[in-house]
Design a protein around this nucleic acid. Structure first.
Lengths: 339, 339
DNA sequence: CGACAAATTGTTAGCGCTGTCATTTTGCAT
DNA sequence: ATGCAAAATGACAGCGCTAACAATTTGTCG
């Protein structure tokens, strides 16, 4: 079943079939219909390799993921897939080794071998400048999810800083004044933005920042448990702790419950991301909803627009980062202090 | 950068380069080395579309996922990707709509359009006979993860029934005699196997089966919460409940803790899968470890072997299902009853 | 050393599309 | 009707590789 079969079945040349398949202009409506009918009747679909070889594009986009949480990955993959499918694109995945010493080279090699038309980068790999430099040099268009370094380019994000400040104001609004914070790893763009937001929230509530109330975590549950060791053994422990993601919040809560602390009566806890985890623990976590699937869906749309755009010579810097809403989700782990 | 460049750089014909790239025999070692050197020096990688068009295979395998948990999907994708990459294959994803009325047709369309060489099916889509029939008819090789219907073919699995029985024996060993069970959805192969295992475990411990102790869940947290409503309001509630996955176990535990029940003192709870969730809740769940990533890795290897095997005319029925170990992971939600 | 088989290497024809350019048809003003 | 530009359609080369087959080189044995 090739384009020739369709052409003869419809009584046109293969070029006309090609035009119809690629939605090119200058085909008479009646001809277009005849071809579409033939395509339907023969249940024809064009051979991707032939298209890729003859044309300039492979109709594939690459999705690079480094080491996100399972939930993040699943959401991102699903969003990218849905958007790609709608545009007739396929998604090819690439996951560099966790300990890859030369990430830029690995990514470049993947791009060269796979011949993808564009690339989608999700954090933390999208936060590595050298990777972006490598892609720029190959002149390969990419979109980033959660780009927070201000580097120009296509992307989608939430305002981590504002969302984080909102959490703090929620807590200060409840009456908390001594609020702990658990950071994420430094190489993760969102981590520092959330820390900034913590400081902003404190400032807005006219509370002084204290270094002892910031604990360095790594976005995993273990970090939360260690944070519990740190905070809950203090002489003057915080009455509320904001963990900058849900895994750490859950780990922290385990540490608190193990010690017999009541949550939220004796300790308020807030997380970030609104992962399924936040609803599975008890009490259910107050957190910030990050709409990953829609974000990645949109990022993919933007990416595909960018590579189809006739004036793609315009510097990527002219394209903006689209910002998504990240609402606070108040559940059961936050309450007024010292009840 | 094409194969011609490499050929002239190495001073051989393009066919010899092709032989080296495809690891074909009958190339003198010295020639092979010369070609490999040229490939390295020119940083050449063959064009996938050209290979796909000229040769018979696309060097892509399809991964179909229906609606698994984020963790399952992430593990499966990672396993499939690692194994494929090692063999020079790419992975193309496909996710039919949740409410797809005609799954077999959607899957067949994906196969036809994408031209993948083989397909990997993870549950529950791998449990749909009509989908398998459609693939058989297209003569497309596939491997299933967790095939439990006894249908012949390539696959990897754990022994859900035995693992489930093991959980029950763990509980009866602790002294429990009244043990509840939360099932998964009927269309999910693993769900019924786990129920069988529950019955087997009871039988082995000489405990009678009681229909009121089996609650129909759907593998989600909400099911667990409804199960709590069902079981914990009984006049004679069970002293232990085995939820056939971790999400339901977590939901159940929320329901118990909300009611002020002590876990595990007043109620033992066991889950299944050993998802990250099982370690994030408090107390940490006793569960069964299902090694998804290694399983899918192996399934992919088997799949690639199958399509490369010269005597692939042998009926798939001759290939077996590889069974993985699923050990019990005892954590903090199981203890002797009525303490 | 010559003959013959085996091992190695090369030549060439597509694979099924898209892009370029040529050709035909159509619409419309004259 | 007639001519001409614009719209629609077609012919054909070639994308970069593999498969089939042809040609050459190498090794072995009498």
């Amino acid at each position: 079943m090739t384009i020739d079969d369709v052409a003869s079945h419809a009584g046109v040349s293969i070029k006309t079939v090609s035009r119809v398949l690629n939605k090119e202009p200058n085909v008479r409506p009646s001809t277009r219909e005849r071809v579409e009918k033939a395509v339907r009747e023969l249940d024809y679909s064009p051979h991707p390799s032939a298209r890729g070889l003859a044309g300039a594009r492979s109709r594939m986009i690459g999705l690079i993921y480094d080491n996100p949480s399972p939930n993040y990955l699943a959401q991102a993959v699903t969003g990218a897939l849905q958007a790609s499918e709608a545009a007739g694109y396929a998604v090819s995945l690439f996951a560099p080794e966790h300990d890859d010493a030369d990430l830029p080279t690995s990514v470049a090699r993947f791009a060269a071998q796979s011949r993808v038309d564009a690339m989608l980068l999700i954090p933390p790999v999208g936060d590595v400048p050298a990777v972006l430099d490598a892609l720029d040099e190959m002149d390969l268009t990419y979109a980033r999810v959660a780009p927070l370094d201000g580097r120009p380019g296509i992307g989608v994000a939430i305002d981590d800083r504002m969302a984080s400040a909102m959490v703090i104001e929620h807590l200060t609004g409840l009456g908390h004044a001594r609020i702990g914070f658990i950071t994420g790893p430094e190489n993760h763009g969102a981590a520092s933005a959330r820390l900034d937001g913590y400081r902003l929230g404190l400032a807005r509530s006219e509370i002084d920042y204290a270094a002892e109330l910031v604990f360095a975590g790594r976005f995993d549950a273990e970090s939360g448990r260690r944070a519990a060791d740190h905070f809950l053994e203090m002489d003057d422990p915080p009455t509320a702790i904001f963990a900058s993601n849900d895994e750490m919040a859950a780990g922290l809560m385990q540490g608190a419950l193990e010690r017999g602390w009541k949550v939220p009566e004796q300790l308020s806890i807030a997380g970030f991301d609104d992962t399924p985890l936040s609803r599975a623990v008890w009490p259910a976590l107050t957190t910030v909803r990050q709409p990953i699937r829609p974000m990645v869906y949109r990022a993919t749309e933007l990416l595909l627009e960018a590579i189809h755009d006739p004036d793609r010579d315009a510097p990527q810097s002219e394209r903006g980062v689209e910002v998504f809403d990240a609402p606070l989700v108040v559940r059961d782990t936050t309450a007024p202090p010292g009840r």
